[in-house]
């Protein structure tokens, strides 16, 4: 495993201030992905999986909003939800959505 693979998409560059602020949370998610997730059979009903979603959300929106988006996604990942493809909103899309 190369260093880049070990770090995963969340902890590799390029770094923004948002991503840096979310770094502690990104480390936690990465620990989950490397140490805990392999112990469990695949369970996430979504694509991308909740942890991959969390990495993108934290990188794109920082610890507060990204953390909130990730928590909401985890809240959606239950047996009464059919799952499917569910991407992190784009920054632009999110802003227009908030405005309307």
């Amino acid at each position: 495993m190369t260093l880049a693979e070990l770090l995963g998409p969340g902890l590799r560059g390029p770094w923004t201030w948002r991503k840096a602020a979310a770094a502690p949370l990104l480390v936690l998610v990465r620990i989950y992905q490397l140490a805990i997730s392999p112990l469990l059979p695949q369970r996430c009903r979504f694509y991308p999986s909740c942890s991959a979603y969390a990495v993108t959300a934290l990188t794109r929106f920082g610890p507060l909003r990204g953390g909130w988006l990730a928590a909401r996604r985890l809240g959606r990942c239950h047996p009464w939800n059919p799952g499917g493809v569910d991407h992190v909103p784009e920054r632009e899309a999110c802003r227009t959505h908030a405005a309307t």
């Binding site: 695949q42 369970r43 996430c44 009903r45 985890l74 990942c77 239950h78 047996p79 939800n81």
Partner: peptide, 8 residues
């Protein structure tokens, strides 16, 4: 897939 809720 069983969803993330049981493990959560």
């Amino acid at each position: 897939f069983s969803s993330c809720l049981p493990i959560l």
